[in-house]
Amino acid sequence: MTSGGALAGPFENEVTLSFEVNGRRVTRRGPGHLSLLRWLRDLVGVTDPKYGCGEGVCGSCAVQVDGQVVSSCIVLAAQVDGAKIETASGMCGDDGSLSGLQQAFHEHHAAQCGFCTPGMLMAAASLLEDGRHRSRDEIREALHGNLCRCTGYGPILDAIEAAQAGREATGPRAGSETKLVAG
């Protein structure tokens, strides 16, 4: 059981917000002061974005809001009412298959404890979106807002480079990154 529905209500400053979360339209009522992170975790039941610092430093809560990567812990849910939200779990195919980027993370051992991984995937997917080739140092630079305490980062860079090479060879694979590009 996930934390969805953990809030019971009624609430002070109650608001009704509607999002398209990973392709699913979700309308919920809840306290107006909630961050997007808490709205997703406590009301929608999408828990792959994580609370890591609450101040937009660690990147564990990264999601895409209308195509832009944001730290969902420092965005009020009410500020982005109606937005299209993508999280790492939405990158999987409908059959649960991993996207090309996710597969590269798996093969290159880019996750250990895995807690930073959903946010890391969002940052990486966003980076690869425009199809421009990035050097390893450019990828490194693009990840500076996502902390990882387990891997030492090398395997994550390996995975993103491999996913980039795969796209350059064959084009984006069917699945979520193409959904993200379309978004």
């Binding site: 059981m1 996930t2 934390s3 969805g4 529905g5 953990a6 975790r41 828990t47 792959d48 994580k50 609370y51 999280t87 790492a88 779990s89 990158m91 999987c92 649960g96 991993l98 996710q102 993370f105 798996h106 051992h109 880019a110 996750a111 250990q112 404890c113 895995g114 807690f115 991984t117 959903p118 995937l121």
Partner: peptide, 19 residues
């Protein structure tokens, strides 16, 4: 275990709740 983590489906301590 990494596959689940990368798919975003792992339920960590704070991801779990009860009625």
């Amino acid at each position: 275990d990494q596959r689940e983590k990368i798919a975003g489906s792992t339920s960590y301590a704070a991801d779990f709740g009860m009625p």
